[in-house]
Design a protein around this nucleic acid. Structure first.
Length: 885
RNA sequence: GCGGACGUGGCGAAAUCGGUAGACGCUGGGGUCUUAAACACCCUUUCCUUUGGAGUACGGGUUCAAGUCCCGUCGUCCGCACCA
């Protein structure tokens, strides 16, 4: 008998299935909902998935053992562009591609032995799912949470589609290479900005979320407090006698030297129509790229409109109004005043256009002088005002801003305004493979919601991707419908929803996945919220913010209870699985040797032999090494072989995220086939803390596998042991209690690497223990229980060998006997002047005075004291003793 | 530029309250078993000028005691970024 995961893992999975142990049930037990971010069905699972789902599985299995009714579901985030791209490139239908990928990935996931309730599985492209999404959309439309407005988008004129910012590379469409145009289209928006303040404030309550994520969301929402006021204009066109601006620095208002408006500002648009020079400048502004570098290097440009505005505190002062390329229409009012003395960007602009630079204040002790750059005081700096609002005390920082707002309000100049950076969420996509937006455009009735009875608005199957653009646009029988209101000829909305909508409520759908309504009140009330959500930090902003908004919108429309407006009680962001990569871009040759380009396409982790020469590591193809009969374990032989075959050498690069393009992907399939799922699970939980990246190494996988085999053999041996009881039985019982306490703490704290380390330690202890057979069997039973969340198949094997009743998966989590956790005696280190010099073992409860006596009698202490009395003697009971000489 | 996190052996890392720095694992070295190997098991692996000394990026400080707290410097990583 040996450890044979290939056989036993399948058997235990079948046993769990038969017993239906993972089916989530509403009952009297407290519930626990653990969810990992659901995958996009790309076709293959990767090690990142394995790590993500294993973490969730450890939590789910642990909580189940602790007596919770656990919900641990799985589904597919199945809409999106890759399916359409596949259809365009290879023919076929996005639907077929997607469902076949789902089948492949499910087949790869099942052997991992995850405790998932597969009866709740769904894909977001199932009409049963997106039909309910459409129903909610209609409710949200009725509630005013969705609206239509014109918005500027990136338009690819060749592919005839809207592109996301990430799909625009150097101003060109990523696929067509065509120059992208900025087009104004009427699109649908969620009114998320209405919730800016609430979404920001509620972050404080998310104490079980990573601080990092909360900070990122707060920055994204971007709250600022400032003054909004109107300049009166001079020589402006009719209807533009006022110009509203927003500023967070009203305290520098007396340093104003110009005003600037966005190229998209209504005034600029008006001028554009009448003045070709403005039109040319505005067109130039709109062409600018949106990438970070483009913005970084873009020169500040302005066009003097000839219009003037009067300073609100001195009508005699007139400031020029520029159209400027750096002013954004969708922040504030799309217009600013410039204070070059105290804002670097304004300073550059003023310098370029020879505008005055009047300072408002100088550093305390400093004199007014020509500035070479804007003076922006630090928080700690003290300043001297040169111009200040009459009667206002001199202040700096936030105080100055606040009192300047109050001052201006009292003088009737504008009002204090809180602004957010967060903009409404545009959800329209001119794409086929997404959830259809359930509205109809009627020439007489306008925009008409589809009748709920007609839901789901199904995607038509008979579409082709041979022409650019959205196939829904040229599908007459789908597109042309009767108006739900008047019955006249109308057109269906052909835009589909952003896939982020799909993922903004799937967690709620899992609570009643097959219901004929989006959610079911009792189920949502029982299962919500998600107690533990686990996923990648790359979703820290968009997905998580949209979900938080959506839960609120669902509550407002009656689809979620009030307690679920923050749907994720705890969030954990896990690190990636990385792997070294085989750097074929560098051709390493001995001096004087000719180089040839390398053409090896098979440098995948499972195909190579690695070895080290000096500080550098190299990889060779396993097949070639074997064919040549070279000793794989001999670095020297490998090195000679490498030098002979000058094209075979590949330098090993640093460990980076696994990706196809780097050819450093370790396929979970091949690992499971070779070692079994438990080895893969054990490995991804060990070594690195869960929130950090973990490096996949062949030696680490090998070691994991060996350890599990060792545990199996140990269980086998202990099961048959007839050794009589010994004095070590009590010692082992204590070690067992300690292992329970520490592994439990590790799992509870998401410190799986520590739990794994404790299990290694406990195994070593048990192997070396001189305890009797019965004592060892008791310890080994606990071992099986402690192992079961992480390596459940092996745990069942061990449980079975020791005669455990039923399945260890269904056994209660072991409790550590508190009495056994307390040691009778403690070993205290003795420090002399803070350095450890000796130790002393004393009974646990020995009084400090008695400990002192013993310490002073210690040889090392006597020697160090050399007959003198210690200056100070510090005894920290149960911890340490420090003798100060 | 703004915001955040982090810096510990050859490597991944532990050290929960300020209290024995390096648990556990990998790698390397040595050994037992074997004709030999594989497997397994055992020992060893922070550094040095080793009766001892130094050491948690660097420089200071607080303390009986600092990886942990405070001040400063350097470095790495991440997020946002023409946001008025």
């Amino acid at each position: 008998m040996t450890y044979d995961p290939a056989v036993t893992e399948a058997r235990w999975q079948a046993a769990w299935d038969t017993a239906g142990v993972f089916t989530a049930k509403r009952d009297a037990r407290p519930k626990y909902y653990v969810l990992e971010m659901f995958p996009y069905p790309s076709g293959r699972i990767h090690m990142g998935h394995v790590r993500n789902y294993t973490m969730g599985d450890v939590i789910a299995r642990y909580k189940a053992s602790c007596g919770f009714s656990v919900l641990h579901p799985m589904g597919w985030d199945a809409f999106g562009m890759p399916a359409e791209n596949a259809a365009i490139e290879r023919g076929g239908h996005p639907k077929d591609w997607t469902y076949s990928n789902i089948a492949d990935m499910r087949a790869q996931m099942k052997p991992l032995g995850l405790s998932i309730d597969w009866s709740r599985e769904f894909a977001t492209c199932d009409p049963e799912y997106y039909g309910q999404q459409q129903a909610m959309f209609l409710d949200m439309l009725a509630a005013g949470l969705v609206y239509r407005k014109a918005a500027v988008v990136n338009w690819d004129p060749v592919d005839m589609t809207v592109l996301a910012n990430e799909q625009v590379i150097d101003g060109r469409g990523w696929r067509s290479g065509a120059l992208v145009e900025r087009r104004e289209l009427t699109q649908w928006f969620f009114r998320i900005s209405e919730y800016s303040g609430e979404l920001l404030a509620a972050l404080d309550g998310l104490t079980d979320w990573p601080e990092k994520v909360r900070v990122m969301q707060a920055n994204w929402i971007g709250k600022s407090r400032g003054l909004q006021f109107a300049f009166s204009t001079v020589d402006a066109p009719e209807g533009f006698d006022r110009l509203e601006v927003y500023t967070t620095r009203p305290d520098t208002l007396l340093g104003a030297s110009f005003a600037a408006i966005s190229a998209d500002h209504p005034l600029a648009k008006h001028l554009e129509r009448h003045d070709p020079a403005v039109a040319a400048f505005v067109a130039e502004c709109r062409r600018g790229g949106t990438s970070a570098e483009a913005i970084e290097t873009a020169e500040k440009m302005g066009y003097d409109t000839g219009i003037r505005v009067r300073h609100p505190f001195d009508a005699a002062v007139e400031l020029p109004v520029y159209v400027a390329n750096f002013v954004l229409m969708d922040y504030g009012t799309g217009a600013i005043f410039g204070c070059p003395a105290h804002d670097q960007r304004d300073f550059e602009f003023a310098t370029k256009y020879a505008l005055p630079i009047p300072p408002v204040f100088v550093a305390e002790g400093g004199e007014e002088a020509a500035l070479t750059e804007a003076y922006v005081p630090m928080k700690s700096d003290r300043v001297r005002y040169l111009r200040s609002f009459a009667g206002l005390p001199v202040q700096t920082g936030d105080e100055a801003v606040t009192s300047a707002i109050t001052f201006c309000e009292e003088k009737g100049v504008g009002r204090g305004v809180t602004n957010y950076r967060l903009r409404d969420w545009g959800l329209s996509r001119q794409r086929y493979w997404g959830c259809p937006i359930p509205v109809v455009h009627c020439p007489t009735c306008g925009v008409v919601p589809e009748a709920k009875a007609n839901l789901p608005v199904r995607l038509p199957d008979d579409v082709t991707f041979d022409k650019p653009g959205n196939p829904l646009d040229r599908h007459p029988t789908w597109r042309d419908v009767a108006c739900p209101k008047c019955g006249g000829a109308a057109r269906r909305e052909t835009d589909t929803m952003d896939t982020f909508v799909d993922s903004s409520w799937y967690y709620a759908r899992f609570t009643a996945p097959h219901a004929l309504t989006p959610t079911v009140a009792e189920d949502a009330a029982y299962w919500m919220n998600v107690d533990q959500y686990i996923g990648g930090v790359e979703h820290a902003i968009l997905h998580l913010l949209y979900s938080r908004f959506f839960a609120r919108a669902m509550h407002k429309t009656g689809h979620l209870p009030a307690k679920a407006i923050e749907p994720f009680n705890a969030l954990f962001t896990q690190g990636m699985v990385t792997h070294e990569f085989y750097d074929r871009s560098v051709n390493l040759t001995a001096p004087g040797e000719a180089t040839e380009p390398m053409r090896y396409e098979h440098f995948l982790p499972e195909n190579v032999v690695t070895f080290t020469v000096g500080d550098e590591r190299f990889a060779l193809l396993k097949k070639e090494v074997r064919d040549a009969g070279v000793d794989e374990s001999n670095p020297g032989a490998l090195q000679s072989f490498m030098i002979e075959g000058r094209n075979r050498r590949v330098r090993i690069g640093p460990s980076i995220k696994m990706s196809k393009s780097k050819k450093n992907v370790v396929d979970p399939d091949s690992i499971i086939a070779r070692y079994g799922a438990d080895t893969a699970r054990w490995f991804v939980m060990s070594d690195s803390p869960a929130e950090r990246d973990v490096e996949w190494t062949a030696s680490g996988a090998e070691a994991a596998s060996k350890h599990l085999a060792r545990v199996w053999r140990l269980a086998d041996e202990i099961a048959q042991s007839v050794a009589p009881a010994t004095d070590d039985d009590a010692v082992l019982a204590r070690a067992t209690a300690k292992a329970i306490a520490e592994v439990t703490a590790g799992i509870e704290g998401f410190a799986f690497n520590k739990a794994v380390a404790k299990l290694y330690e406990f195994t070593n202890t048990l192997m070396r223990s001189g305890a009797g057979g019965d004592a060892k069997r008791r310890a080994m039973v606990v071992m099986a229980q402690l192992l079961s969340p992480i390596v459940p198949h092996l745990a069942e094997d061990v449980w079975g060998m020791l005669g455990g009743a039923g399945l260890v998966t269904q056994a209660a989590w072991p409790l550590a006997d508190p009495a056994l956790l307390v040691e009778d005696s403690v070993t205290l280190p003795i420090q002399i002047n803070g350095k450890r010099r000796a130790e002393i073992t004393v009974p646990k409860d020995m009084p400090a005075a008695e400990v002192e006596k013993r310490v002073l009698a210690d040889d090392a202490v006597i020697k160090a004291l050399a007959g003198l009395a210690p200056k100070k003697l510090i005894v920290v009971p149960g911890r340490i003793v420090n003798v100060v000489i």
